[in-house]
Amino acid sequence: MKVVAAVLLAALGGNSSPCADDIKGILGSVGIDCDDERIELLLGQLKGRDLAEVIAAGREKFASVPSGGGVAVAVAGGGGGGAAAAAAAPEAEAKKEEKVEEKEESDDDMGFSLFD
């Protein structure tokens, strides 16, 4: 990732095709040493390609990756009664919400209020 970041920084600086020395210079300016093999590997993969096109292709690939939305959550019930346990779960949640609201309305500040 350090090498990729250095290539992107070079591109932002106006160098659309940085060489290994440019990348080493960028990384060296912040005290980072990097393996020459990794630099050559990345530069070999980017050779002859436009960086903007590579980024656009990567975005398309990420668009097809599931992001975790719509994950089913299992409701823990105590043995048998599948439908009954599923029906009781919303009621239990409603009771919990009511208890939370009651606590918020209670007089926890012992009669003193900052906004009186």
Score class of each variant (00 low, 15 high):
L42F: 14
L42G: 00
L42I: 15
L43H: 02
L43R: 00
G44K: 05
Q45F: 04
L46F: 15
L46V: 07
L46D: 02
K47L: 04
K47A: 09
G48T: 04
G48A: 09
G48C: 07
G48N: 11
G48R: 04
R49I: 00
R49W: 00
R49P: 02
D50S: 09
D50K: 11
D50N: 13
L51M: 11
L51Q: 03
L51V: 12
L51T: 01
L51C: 01
A52D: 15
A52R: 12
A52L: 15
E53G: 04
E53A: 11
E53D: 15
V54Y: 01
V54N: 02
V54D: 01
V54P: 01
I55G: 01
I55Y: 00
I55H: 01
I55E: 07
A56F: 06
A56C: 05
A56E: 14
A56W: 04
A56R: 09
A57R: 12
A57H: 11
G58R: 02
R59K: 12
R59A: 12
R59L: 14
R59C: 08
R59G: 04
E60K: 06
K61P: 01
K61R: 12
K61I: 14
F62N: 01
A63N: 08
A63S: 11
S64P: 00
S64E: 15
V65N: 02
V65G: 03
P66R: 04
P66D: 07
P66S: 04
S67C: 04
S67Y: 00
G68D: 07
G68R: 04
G68W: 06
G69K: 11
G70I: 05
G70P: 00
G70S: 05
V71A: 08
V71P: 00
V71H: 02
A72E: 15
V73F: 12
V73Q: 08
V73N: 01
V73L: 14
V73A: 10
V75T: 12
V75K: 06
V75F: 10
V75W: 09
A76N: 07
A76Y: 10
A76L: 14
A76I: 14
G78T: 14
G78R: 12
G78C: 13
G78H: 11
G78F: 13
G79M: 12
G79R: 14
G80K: 10
G80F: 07
G80C: 08
G81F: 09
G81E: 15
G81T: 09
G81L: 14
G81Y: 06
G82R: 09
G82E: 13
A84M: 08
A84L: 09
A85Y: 03
A85D: 10
A85G: 08
A85N: 06
